[in-house]
């Protein structure tokens, strides 16, 4: 597509943890706006490092990154740090803080209409009416009147703890769900997710899958959830000993090419290759599973 726009690119990026543990090796990659990318690799293959570099959190690397600064970036980390003194609801509201601030201003404006000082001063009154219209337009534009219901729906879907629970009493998994909820409400142009499905149950994973499928921006997710990789990802990025190997296609098509590549590389049939073959066989089975999925 001619109008595909690269919003972030990396050229010759290396990441070395001192003294000499190289986790990323000579990475050349460009990311399209709106692309859905699944990142695969063994533990320690540099997946989290890659996300942190794209997020702009890690600046200690060699090589070059070029990003379009007009795009916003958001990252879900494996162990997100949240303000312990806040409640679940307060953290989730941070994801929509502009809207929350506007709603607050709207409330204050409405109170001022009862203020005698303003009632008796036509000048101030006109200004207030103009500001009210301005704020109302903005609120209409972001559909702010349904905000409460929207927040409740999001918190329900990710099974967040009760809204008034304090962050300090939450388990690691609960904190992650709250952080994910805030991030999805923020709707950054580039959504970076490190193992988003851990600590979710199967139904919430399905909900997240549907949500990300129609997400406007770019999604880069480190995950081993293969339905997610099959149903959402348009690209698979495999990290192998620090090197990045992109593949245009979903998980099944990636398996297919990987199996062929392995077959070429090793003339003798390895157990790994056989296992890939059997998983592919399973994928291709015209099973009830498939027909059930197609009806969704």
């Amino acid at each position: 597509m001619a109008d595909e726009k690269i919003i972030f690119s990396m050229a010759g990026v290396n990441k070395i943890y001192p003294p000499q543990k190289q986790v990323l090796k000579n990475i050349y990659l460009g990311f399209y706006y709106g692309a859905k990318i699944g990142v695969l690799g063994l533990n320690g293959s540099g997946k989290s490092s890659l996300l942190r570099i794209i997020a702009g959190i890690d600046k200690e690397f060699q090589g070059e990154v070029v990003s379009d600064l007009s795009f916003s970036v958001g990252l879900l980390e494996q162990e997100p740090q949240l303000d312990k003194s806040k409640t679940v609801r307060e953290i989730v509201e941070e994801g929509v803080k502009e809207t929350v601030a506007l709603l607050k201003e709207f409330e204050i404006i409405n109170e001022k209409f009862g203020d005698p000082e303003i009632l008796e001063n036509p000048d101030k009154m006109d200004k207030l009416i103009a500001r009210q219209a301005e704020v109302q337009d903005k609120l209409d534009a972001v559909d702010a009147w349904g905000l409460d219901a929207k927040l409740d729906r999001a918190m329900d879907a990710l099974r967040c703890p009760p809204s008034d629970a304090k962050i300090e009493v939450l388990s690691g998994g609960e904190k992650r769900r709250v952080a994910l909820c805030r991030l999805l409400l923020q709707e950054p142009d580039v959504l970076l997710l490190d193992e988003p499905t851990n600590h979710l149950d199967a139904e919430s994973v399905y909900w997240l899958e549907q949500h990300l499928k129609q997400y406007k921006g770019t999604v880069i997710a480190v995950t081993h959830d293969r339905y997610f990789l099959d149903n959402v990802a348009g690209w698979i990025l495999e990290l192998d000993r620090g090197e990045g190997i992109p593949w245009k296609g979903n998980y099944s098509s990636w398996l297919d090419q990987k199996q062929k590549r392995l077959a070429q590389e090793e003339k003798s049939e390895s157990k790994r290759q056989k296992a890939l073959e059997r998983e592919l066989e399973w994928v291709r089975m015209p099973s009830k599973r498939k027909s059930a999925l197609e009806q969704l």
């Binding site: 329900d156 909900w207 009830k288």
Partner: peptide, 22 residues
């Protein structure tokens, strides 16, 4: 049955709901 079959069964029984808090 399998998980996908269960999902189908659940949708028939309970409708296509989004997840709720427990």
């Amino acid at each position: 049955g399998s998980f996908s079959e269960y999902e189908e069964n659940k949708r028939k029984r309970l409708g296509d709901e989004q997840p709720k808090r427990i």
